[in-house]
Write a protein that binds this DNA or RNA. Sequence first.
RNA 1: GCGCCCAUAGCUCAGUGGAUUAGAGCACCGGCCUCCGGAGCCGGUGGCGCAGGUUCGAGUCCUGCUGGGCGCACCA
Length: 570
Amino acid sequence: MPHADDPLTERIKSDLIARLKTAVGAVADQLGLPAPDRPQVYLEVPKDRRHGDYASNAAMLLGRAARQNPRAVAQTLLETLELSGTQVERAEIAGPGFINLHLKPTWIYDALREVVRLDEDYGRSRAGGGQKFQVEFVSANPTGPLVVVNARAAALGDTLAGVLAWAGYETQREYYVDNMGTQVDTLGKSFELRLRELLGETIEFPEGCYPGSYVIDIAKEFLKERGEAGARRLLGIDDEKARRRELAAHAVERIVAGHKDQLDRYGVHFDEWFSQKSLAESGAVDRAVTTLRKHGHIFEQDGAVWFRSTTFGDDKDRVVVRSNGEPTYFALDIAYHLNKFERGFQKVIDLWGPDHASHVTRMMAMTQALGYPQGTLEILIVQWVRLLSQGQLVKMSKRAGDFVTMEELIDEVGKDAARFFFLMRAAESHLDFDLDLAKLKTADNPVFYVQYAHARVSSLLKQAAQEGFAPQDLPVEALSRLTDPSELELLRKLSYLPEEIAGAAAAREPHRLTRYAIDTATLFHKFYDSCRVLGAEPEVRDARLVLVDAARIVLRNVLGLLGVSAPERM
RNA sequence: GCGCCCAUAGCUCAGUGGAUUAGAGCACCGGCCUCCGGAGCCGGUGGCGCAGGUUCGAGUCCUGCUGGGCGCACCA
């Protein structure tokens, strides 16, 4: 239902959809079409402007369901459709049976006024109705530095969370710290060996330990902090398990701190750093298994405890407690997600790497087995990134050995380019990242293209201010001096921002925003090229200043969501 | 062998519920600055991996094939 706080485009659209629904219902009655066969009604923005501001395919869908000629159905529909008191100027049937709606030209000036009025809140909507969502992302193992794919996930997760928040979902960003298990033990061992090495022992560094130089850095730092005596005291603990645990805890802490630093620098801030260890220590795993058992999804076999995930479509059942009594990683994940569900999120969205893609099915199984509706958990797979330079694959890293780190990437191309480039692609698409292009501080680089538009806008407004002109609160009549096609195209694009954001949120596709940003920048440049602002006759100049200001607002808001800076000068 | 992801212009990718004429950037060719930032604008070359199917209509849905990526632990 339309609401006074909704963005103008949303109000217009939902009002029209409601009317269309009524008409479709009436026509369906006439045709004797039972309720389940009635099409869902929606409006789309036609690619071609000549097809109106909105188009509906309802007649074609109705026609198919009732085995009637779509154009004839469209005719009936149009006669039934009540459009008085709306912004629609004319409605027509086109092509195979589309109903194209043309709005009165003045609505666009209302939209412009709204952009300027809402300013830094322009783009927000209530589409999400305040539902509580969680986005969990990055969640890298604290056994080494963040790498390039983490940077991709960080950009996608952060902007997805931002887009959801703007679309009216209450959104939390969470990072899961995997601070226990085999990998952490291995880290403890690697750390110990490096320490001993630094203290003069001859060490054969074994296969399977972490060879990256970051472990040596941590060891060096540790020595500096605690001194040789402190280090020897720790290494002197006889019980290997206890000793390693302590060492591992220290190394994990350092590494997680490093992750935080890099993410901070990247503009990504989490609301919650959730510790796997504290979860495990709280007895959550037992509770989770007990809950599953209560629902009848647990069985014992070969001395292990299994979750019967095949009940929910998995291709095999999964162990949750090993025969040695240790819970599996999956068991921890069940406990973790149960915890999330119990925190009251209507939707939990996880961003995972492709190496975990095969776990999706068992996670969905678990969600249902715990009694939560399907769809409570959504898992988005973020595909690998390949770095290219001069057409060659870049693989080696100074610090980590096999992988290029997130830190190196940011050092190399900067936060803005990194985030923008990652956000230009859909999460699930394999991505070749062109380092040379991202590094260019010039024309060819799309991120600079958009930033340049913002800088140009800012510069123009500054110039205007120097000449004593500023954007004013103009009525629709004054704004209707904007009639050039380039002005109207830009204005129309600006008016779509709330829908664009709500759409990106609903589809979980934050990458749509980079395209929107590029399109907006293009339309601004075109406008700038064909219309003078300063020096135009006063009424036109004043109207154009408002448009320029609106472009500034939109570019700034979008860049903000992308986590890319909006410079006033470049 | 099984499962998942991907395949659109020379290259990297969009294509948002199936819909009227498939887009952008890079690359290449040709134009536009006495004027608010030419880091811009305008024009041109060029494409849906293959084969079927469903439909009034398929880049989009279904099946098969081919090519590439990732998984298939009582590791995480």
